[in-house]
Simulated assay, not measured.
Amino acid sequence: MAVLERPLIARPRILLVEDDAAVAGLTARFLQNHGIECHMAAGVAAAEQCLSREVVDLILLDLGLPDGDGLTMLRRQSSQIPVIVVTGRGDSVDRVVGLELGADDYVAKPFDYRELLARIHSVLRRAQRPLVPAGHVLRFDGLLLDASARVVFDRDGDAIRLTSAEFDLLYALVQAAGKVQSRDQLMNALHGRDAGPFDRAIDVHIGRLRRKLERDPSQPQLIQATRGVGYRLAASVSM
């Protein structure tokens, strides 16, 4: 599916994919009152039609849709557009699968609108704002990370497709190379909050990074775990 180029954000535009008309209406009204433009779609087909003609900065995606599984849509979605998945309170498996497929964050129903707004702003900040001045390039283990362009190149010089969450997690590890970063520290780097006792988001993102960056993902050497604490980048970093 072709995705239109996104310009710089002025008034953020969100595609809200939600089949419950009452929930969609209340959510859209709240977000619009807080400076966010909302396009709405009640299912997969309508959402994909909207994406073919509209430029959006983020997708808020309910996983339970009448004409298909939201996870299927997420699997087809370009990582150029950040995605926050919406799940039922008890659907922990769907949350993990959503993160595995490249979602940047998730929120559980019934959600607090202020928390939803904070999650949206957090993801948009990561996706749109350079972390450092132009020209800040870091090298480690044969990889190259261009922090201003928010891109990582593999050992053959090809760009690696990372979600905004994956990039920020890797950047946090690179900045603290050799030092163990706790899950709370890493969660704060991503979302500005500590990890909850059952929050597997960091572990899922680490698993995706390992599959994309490690020489042998089955025996990870670059991103190492310290049991019960967190993760560290086991490589020297040079400019």
Rank of each mutant, 00 (worst) to 15 (best):
L8C: 14
D19Q: 06
A22K: 12
L26W: 04
L26S: 12
T27V: 10
Q32A: 14
I36M: 12
I36L: 15
C38V: 01
A46K: 02
A46R: 05
R53I: 15
L60T: 01
D67F: 07
T72S: 11
Q80D: 09
I84C: 05
V85P: 03
D94E: 03
R95P: 10
R95F: 09
L99H: 05
L99E: 05
E100K: 05
Y106P: 03
V107D: 12
A108Y: 00
K109A: 05
R126S: 10
A127D: 02
Q128M: 03
L131P: 04
G135N: 04
G142F: 10
L144Y: 00
D146M: 15
D146F: 08
A149W: 12
V151I: 09
V151D: 04
D154K: 03
D158H: 11
I160E: 04
L162P: 01
L162Y: 05
L169C: 10
L173M: 00
A177T: 06
R183A: 10
Q185I: 00
M187C: 12
L190M: 09
R193G: 01
F198I: 06
H205F: 15
H205K: 13
G207D: 11
K212E: 15
D216I: 12
D216Q: 13
L222A: 02
T226A: 15
L233F: 06
A234E: 07
M239I: 04
